[in-house]
Every structure is written in C-alpha cells, then in structure tokens.
Amino acid sequence: MTARLRQSPTLAILAGLWVLLVAGIALLSPGILTASTLTTILQFSSILALVSLGQALVILAGGAGIDLSVGGIVSLASVLAMMAVSAGLPATLLPLACLGIGLALGLGNGLLVTRLRILPLIATLATFYVFSGSAVALTGGAAQSGVPAAFTPWGRGALAGIPLPFLTLALPLFLVAGVVISATSWGRWLVAMGDNERSARLVGIPVDRARLIVYGLSGLASGAAAFVSLAWLGSARPNIGQNLELTSLTAVLLGGVSIFGGRGGVAGVLAAVLLLVTLQTALLRLNINTVWQVGIVGALLVAVLVADALTTRRR
C-alpha cells in the first residue's frame, strides 16, 4: 500500500486533504457529519464524475487531447433526447437516446481531431459553442419538462444512503475504466500513445482509431450524465452542462492525470471529484460566500500541482 501511494503521490495528497477537510468540518461544525450529507455529496458528484471520466480518457490518450465540449454535449443530449420523447419516441428509450446522441456528438469531435487533424483544443472549443448554442437555440432557453415519472425514483433514490445514479452508473463505469486501462491491451495502448505517440505508431498501435473511440467514449459518458440530469431534475435544462468543461478539467488535473497524457489513472479522478464536491458542500454548510469557493478551488489546484511537481522532480 505504502509503495503504491509513493508511486502516485497525488492519490496520497488527495486522501490526506480529504481527511483534513472532514476533520476540519468535524471540529467546526460537527452537526454536518451525517449520512444525509454523504448522500448529498455523492448525488452532486454523479454528473461531474461521469463527465470527468470521459475527460480523463481523452487527456490520458495524449496528442494534446482535451474535450472542451463535454458540457455542451450534456446540455444538447438532454435537450434533444427530451424533445424526441415529446415528439413521440417511446419513453423507455430515453436513456438510449441520451447515450446515442452523446456518442454521436463525441465521435464528431473524434473525426475533427483524427481525420481533419484539427488541434483538439480548437476543435472541441468550436463544438462546445455549436453544442451549447444549439441547445439554447432549440429550446429558446426554456427548460423542457415532462421526463417520464418512471425515471425520477432512480434519479432521486438512494440505497443505503448511496444515490442510485452514483451506485449503479458512475461507480461501475469507473471500475470498468480502471480495469480496462490497467488490465487490457487496448487500455495500455491508450497510455502508451499518450506517453509517446511516435513510438506507439511505430509499434503498430492504431493510434487514430483508438483516439476516435476515446472521443466517442467521452461523448458517451456525457450522454450518461445527461440522462442522470434528466432523471434527477425531472426536466431538460438547455444550460445544464454549464461550467462542466472547466470543473471536469479541474477534477482530472487534480486527480493526477498529466495534461500531456500518458500519466495518471481514473482512481485519482474519482477521488478528486469527491474532494471537490465535499469541499463545496463543506463551504456551503459553513455559510461561506460562494464567491470565495471559486477562489479556494483554484488555490487547491495550484497547491496540488505544485506538490506534484516537487515530488516528481525529487524522484
């Protein structure tokens, strides 16, 4: 365990911070430490966790990979899926519609990046505007209500204090992604091409195809997040994905994934998501002005990156 922690200092730092945070809360306001707080934190983590998972895969696979369009995909997928149901699509297909639209939009990003060779930062910035703009334009900015009542018990329910979207969707996907990255050859390809794309091509890894799939997976994860938002809020908001591109990026970097790709894992990303949401919740509970919270998250990111840089240099 110690050896593993030494290998990934970020995970240790995050765990340490989380313990300190919880201890701090216990000291300042012990009333917060209840089971319902845990439920709240996990509920608000679900969407961010799903989106961050996709973002992590894209960044991990290197080639200056980044997906700025995730928030736009969440908004557009939820709005389009909801409109499809209103237009007569059977309600039971709502989850599939979200996933399918997400996947298609993500593959669109992948094609821009791999076929047209547009820098991911620019390609996904462009699609971010296209997706989030279309979501607002299609709806005139109004929320689309009428999510079938059959889905809300799942979106708002909890089992043993763990919200169902987290327990049955986010957590399993993180486990699958973790296993794929560490135990399958395809997962190792991702890390290898992120680490050194030239060598990856030389040893025959189909880099472009893998990268196309990775952008598709990021879209798929955003589509899943869109479905969680529908089942939870009971309506499709055209701006539900607002800020997700930046918060997911924060979670991924905080979670120890190198922005250059090829280094890091999804466990750290999940830990970072939980830390971010716990921090937000704690600050809200202590009634600290929300303006401060934004600054504190930034300071936290700087602190962790500095710590990471120092420990890496020492090694």
Binding site: P9, A12, I13, G16, L17, L20, L21, G24, L28, S29, G31, L279, A282, L283, R285, L286, N287, I288, W292, I296, A299, L300, A303, V304, V306, A307, L310, T311
Partner: peptide, 20 residues
C-alpha cells in the same frame, strides 16, 4: 514537504470559516 503543502492547502480551506 508533502505534509507541509497539505497543511498549507488545508489552512486555505479553513480561512474565513465561520461557525454555523
């Protein structure tokens, strides 16, 4: 050093904290 940084970050978190 890691511990120091952790403490530093935690102090940041606690800044401005007020009792509920």
């Amino acid at each position: 050093r890691q511990l120091k940084l952790t403490l530093f970050a935690a102090t940041l978190l606690a800044t401005g904290a007020l009792p509920a």
